[in-house]
Amino acid sequence: MKKTYGSAAEALDGLLHDGMFIAAGGFGLCGIPELLLDAIKDAGTKDLTFASNNAGVDDFGIGILLQTRQVKKMISSYVGENAEFMRQYLSGELELEFNPQGTLAERMRAGGAGIPGFFTKTGVGTVIAEGKMEKQFPTGPDGAMEDYIMEEGIFADLAIVKAWKADETGNLVFRKTARNFNVPAATCGKICVAEVEEIVPTGSLDPDAIHLPGIYVHRIIQGDHEKRIEQRTVREA
């Protein structure tokens, strides 16, 4: 099956529709599927729900779709570096479902593993627990009962991720922090589209170096990527 496409627009052809749910990889400004996000912006697809750790910054990452009002809801754990994200949320223009960072990653991983729900202690006794099923388990000292809340797995219409290398069958290798959310995000989409810095011949990747098997990846593009620094701090000359 052909997985390699010539551009982000070609790779997304036939997949986009208004109101869809997209899981996006990336952590801060690292490992953001920037070319695919640009193509979604150009396609004009609207009323989107995104599950992503954060929304990039105002002019990069999901931030570009917030500027064009194409995003209806964010499922995220961090909003601090995106002024437009905060403005839309505080003004009631954007729905926001806050998730603890580990919970969000596990919700994606669970969806990719076909697990519709799981219990966690994270968020018990806080606003995170409001409206969620609670249950006790004997996990405390000497088997004491402890409170847990149930979180739902994420099952997205589409996953978009950014990797360092891919082979022609879709096996992916990520670099460092880009591995945090890209791997679980990739697994929880019905269709996964990956953009990479380099596509190498099948068989040339060390099997032990592959972070995501190609069975999860349906379409691949290669492109040039911008390496941004989120915050630059230097001493005075």
Rank of each mutant, 00 (worst) to 15 (best):
Y78N: 14
V79L: 15
V79A: 15
G80N: 12
E81I: 08
A83N: 13
F85R: 07
Q88W: 10
Y89V: 15
G92P: 09
E95A: 11
E95D: 14
E95T: 05
E97K: 13
F98W: 11
F98H: 14
Q101T: 06
Q101E: 09
G102D: 00
G102W: 00
E106N: 03
M108S: 01
G111W: 00
G114H: 12
F118L: 01
F119Q: 00
G123R: 04
G131Q: 08
K132R: 15
K132F: 03
E134D: 00
K135T: 05
G140S: 03
P141Y: 07
D142R: 13
G143H: 03
A144M: 05
D147I: 00
D147K: 12
Y148T: 04
Y148Q: 06
Y148P: 05
E152S: 08
G153P: 06
F155V: 10
F155T: 09
A156V: 08
A159S: 15
K162E: 04
K162G: 06
E168Y: 07
T177F: 12
A178D: 14
A178M: 14
F181R: 11
A185Y: 11
T187E: 15
C188A: 13
G189P: 01
I191A: 14
A194V: 08
E197N: 14
V200Q: 11
G203M: 13
L205D: 14
